[in-house]
Amino acid sequence: MKVADRMTRNVHLAAPDETIAQAAHAMAACDTGALPVGSGGRIVGMVTDRDIALRAVALGKGPDTLVREVMSVGVACCFEDEELDQVARRMAEQQVRRMPVMTRDHRLVGILSLGDLATGGEAGPAGEALRGVSRPCGTGR
Score class of each variant (00 low, 15 high):
1 M>D: 04
1 M>K: 04
3 V>F: 09
3 V>I: 11
4 A>C: 09
7 M>D: 10
8 T>L: 11
10 N>I: 12
10 N>M: 13
12 H>I: 15
13 L>K: 12
14 A>P: 06
14 A>I: 06
16 P>G: 13
17 D>E: 15
17 D>P: 10
19 T>Y: 12
21 A>L: 05
23 A>C: 07
24 A>W: 01
26 A>G: 13
28 A>Q: 14
31 D>F: 01
31 D>W: 00
32 T>V: 15
32 T>E: 07
33 G>I: 06
33 G>E: 01
34 A>Q: 03
34 A>R: 01
38 G>E: 01
38 G>C: 02
38 G>H: 02
38 G>Q: 11
40 G>H: 04
42 R>H: 13
43 I>Y: 04
45 G>C: 08
45 G>T: 06
47 V>Y: 10
48 T>G: 11
48 T>I: 12
48 T>D: 00
49 D>F: 05
49 D>S: 08
51 D>M: 12
52 I>G: 02
52 I>K: 03
55 R>Y: 12
57 V>L: 14
58 A>P: 10
58 A>G: 12
58 A>V: 12
58 A>H: 13
58 A>T: 04
62 G>L: 08
63 P>F: 14
63 P>R: 06
64 D>V: 00
65 T>V: 10
66 L>N: 09
69 E>D: 15
69 E>R: 15
71 M>A: 07
72 S>K: 09
75 V>T: 05
75 V>Q: 00
81 D>Q: 15
82 E>T: 08
83 E>D: 06
85 D>G: 07
85 D>H: 15
86 Q>E: 15
87 V>S: 13
87 V>M: 02
90 R>V: 10
90 R>G: 00
90 R>T: 10
91 M>P: 13
93 E>P: 03
94 Q>G: 14
94 Q>I: 09
95 Q>C: 10
95 Q>P: 03
97 R>P: 08
99 M>W: 06
103 T>Y: 08
103 T>W: 07
104 R>Y: 02
105 D>H: 02
110 G>P: 02
112 L>P: 00
113 S>M: 11
114 L>A: 14
114 L>P: 13
115 G>K: 11
116 D>W: 13
116 D>I: 12
116 D>Y: 11
117 L>W: 07
120 G>K: 05
121 G>F: 04
122 E>V: 12
123 A>H: 14
124 G>E: 11
124 G>Y: 03
127 G>L: 08
127 G>C: 05
128 E>Y: 04
129 A>L: 14
130 L>P: 02
131 R>S: 13
131 R>M: 00
135 R>Y: 01
136 P>V: 09
139 T>R: 07
